Computed example of a mutant assay.
Amino acid sequence: MRSPGPTFGVEEEYLLLDADTGLPAPRARAVQAAADPEPALGDELDTELLQAQVEVATPVCGRLDEAVAHLERLRGAVARAAARVGCRVAATGGAPLSTGLAMPVTPQPRYLEMRADAARLVDEQLINGMHVHIAVPDRDAGAAALAAIRPWLPVVVALGGNSPFWDGRDTGFASWRTVVFGRWPVSGSPPYTPDADSYEQRADAVLATGVIPDRHQLYWHARLSESYPTLEVRAPDVQLDAESAVTLAGLCRALVATALADGDRRPPNPPADVMQAASWHAARHGVAGDLVDPRTGKPAKAAEVAEALLEHVAPALAETGDTERVTGGVDRMLHGGTGAERQRQAAGEGGVSGLVDLISFGGPSRLGGGENDEVQR
């Protein structure tokens, strides 16, 4: 059975950790080779910018339970392949530990060009996101939907924060990945584009500067896909577990479905600097304090803003039968902790080994405790 809402797919990026040390391990090609016995993977496992990362993508889904099943299948298969080469797979938005040495770049022309153009920045791309592709009828509808979901994207950043640690230290941020990714020339909040013409003009103007080589480096929190007939939401960190990932996927789909249903209704258009401030604040605090309320541009308690978002998308969630699952998932994030809060709790209770055990899947680590088994806070 297909859901009455738009179809969607989920991409997840993972970090490869050495099973003995918990440090990033540049073994992506070895993991790919070790995945051959895994019929569950097929061609759904891919490399990423750095060789300590891999990416998976679900097939097109119509229902959230389909997406959960695919993500659990993919995570299990990748974990088994990684274990064959001495790795664990970590679902964290940023590498919590680092040797300080640069990870090798995957030897593809585009990635090598990025390394030559922005060496230190590429070295620090040990960050992992979650991308949700939601089907749109055409690029006009997609651009209008992008304009409509734009004010709510900082809330998705906050709910999706899962990268509090970096280089052995607590950054103080819920999503340090958002900060690292924000260093690229084109990143953060997307521009206001009410139709396809305005979107294409904005993208073409950026390309005309010569600063980025192609549209794949339009690293906005959401954008129109150049490969599929979809709107791609890129705001959240990769999530600790498949159920959290599907909560955010369902929320993003409902946002787009709501925008498509609103048709010609003109959405709010917060100024770019307000959007930047709202996104930074969301990355800094997650849902632990206030968020910028997109309806007013003023601070409000995170739970109230999340509730406003759920109210905004309630008809779309009801239409697809996702109300209980998505609202329950958001409630768990608000009251049980987002990934960032759960990581801090694990580090506080179990040190490095406890943190690595939380963020990794595929069996227990071989890390031993000791006097240095703690993350600096």
Rank of each mutant, 00 (worst) to 15 (best):
G354N: 03
G160E: 06
L355E: 04
D123C: 08
D262P: 09
D140K: 07
V180Q: 13
V156K: 01
D36V: 14
L23V: 02
Y199F: 14
A272E: 13
A346W: 04
I134P: 08
R284H: 12
P191F: 08
E371R: 12
G289C: 08
A158C: 11
D20W: 02
A135Q: 14
L248Q: 00
L97A: 07
L15W: 03
R84H: 13
G351Q: 07
Y219I: 06
L112D: 11
A40L: 15
M130H: 07
A40N: 07
E349L: 12
S98N: 12
N128L: 09
G76V: 12
L17T: 03
G336E: 00
W280N: 10
A318L: 15
F165T: 11
G321R: 07
A196I: 12
T230M: 04
L50G: 10
D264S: 14
Q32V: 12
Q276C: 10
P104E: 13
I127S: 05
G354L: 06
P151I: 14
S187F: 01
G160M: 09
E13K: 03
E319D: 14
V157T: 13
C252I: 09
T7Q: 15
V287C: 03
I359D: 02
A135N: 12
R284N: 06
N162K: 11
N372P: 00
L16M: 06
A158Q: 05
D20V: 01
V60P: 00
T178H: 13
F173Y: 15
G348V: 01
A34R: 06
R366A: 11
V326N: 00
A272Y: 02
Q239S: 05
A77Y: 08
L231I: 10
Q217F: 10
S279Q: 11
R115F: 10
E66L: 06
T106G: 08
V31S: 07
A277G: 14
P271V: 10
T209Y: 09
D140H: 14
A69D: 13
V132K: 04
Q345G: 00
A346C: 02
C252R: 07
V206F: 13
T320L: 03
K301G: 14
A141F: 06
W166M: 05
V287E: 12
L255E: 14
R29D: 15
V313W: 02
G351C: 06
L15F: 01
R88C: 08
M130G: 02
N128T: 04
G348R: 12
A118E: 11
R29E: 15
L334D: 02
S365E: 01
H70K: 08
V375E: 04
E72H: 02
Y111P: 09
T99D: 15
S3Y: 07
A235E: 01
L50W: 02
D204N: 15
Q125G: 03
E72F: 10
G286Y: 02
T296L: 10
L15H: 06
G286V: 11
T323Q: 03
L159Y: 00
T320A: 12
D237F: 12
A33L: 13
M130V: 03
M103H: 11
Q51R: 15
E48F: 00
C87A: 09
R344F: 01
L224Q: 05
D273R: 11
A282G: 07
E72D: 15
A314R: 14
G62R: 04
P37S: 05
A141P: 06
S187D: 09
S360L: 01
A347L: 08
W280K: 05
L355T: 00
A346S: 05
R73W: 03
L355Q: 05
G86F: 04
G354R: 06
L49R: 07
V155Y: 01
D36G: 09
